[in-house]
Design a protein around this nucleic acid. Structure first.
Lengths: 144, 144
DNA sequence: CAAATTTCAGTTCCACTGAGATGG
DNA sequence: CCCATCTCAGTGAAACTGAAATTT
């Protein structure tokens, strides 16, 4: 055992790779004037259709307090709309606008190109295997 | 292509897994009154022997300004010592103490048990493959 | 009453930037 | 003059906590 080298620890490798991925994503988003939260919320909106802020937060795995601020920005950019829910007055129903859909398609391209850049050193089979293995870790995580 | 689902993106899976790993590590370190930076600096000290703060930072991949604060804590706990470098008065030479070595062994055990917990859902072969694939990503990263 | 939603304010952690002082 | 080192101060994103108001 060589406990002095971090480079074989799964935790270390994961942390390094994720930091790299995060940096690629953050700078790619920044180049088009967006952020990870914005993309994730737009994705959740397309998945769910018009939805409450709380359910969007659960779907995008973003804390409720952060959802408020991010949606305020998206609303200011005309990408989403908030309206009161007539059936439940606690809720505000959020829907994506036409501009929001266009923006999402644009961000999809940005994200896809980042994926490509990230896994560039791997073969097709290796990419699939990486996704499969990480999926196994994520699945267990989710069961906690 | 289904661009609306994040769950197949390597960046997303990496982020989720790394967050999980980080949480496991952080709480394991916290239980014994330590932190990731402390462990990484102690490892770097064992790798390099007595070294300047700047070189420790490069080895542990910790920003110079953060190295200062972390070493101040380690010094307060008696785990490292700082002394002026007679040959280069800009430098402070950091060395690990006997208590620091004992601490490092203890933290090695903590870290090892976290690795085990993290990759528990994978078979031995799968663990090796995950490490290999992440290593490929990390290697390219390092060449930038 | 308990629970859910929205919101604000504040905190923590990590990683970085900028600047200044010292010295090579 | 330029570069490296150490240090402090401050910034910014991500994620969270606590609390309050409203409504179910």
């Amino acid at each position: 055992m060589a406990p002095t080298r971090l480079d074989d620890f799964p935790t270390w490798l994961l942390s390094r790779s994720a930091a790299h991925a995060h940096q690629l994503l953050a700078s790619a988003f920044a180049e088009v004037g967006s952020r990870g939260y914005h993309y994730r919320l737009l994705v959740a909106l397309e998945d769910l259709g018009p939805a409450s802020q709380a359910s969007l937060g659960r779907s995008a795995e973003i804390d409720a307090s952060d959802v408020v601020a991010a949606l305020t920005q998206l609303e200011a950019d005309g990408l989403v709309e908030r309206s009161p829910d007539p059936d439940d007055k606690r809720r505000r129903i959020v829907s994506i606008t036409a501009a929001g859909r266009r923006r999402l398609l644009e961000l999809d391209r940005v994200v896809s190109s980042v994926q490509e850049k990230l896994v560039a050193p791997l073969s097709g089979a290796e990419r699939d295997e990486l996704v499969r293995l990480l999926g196994l870790l994520a699945r267990v995580e989710r069961e906690d």
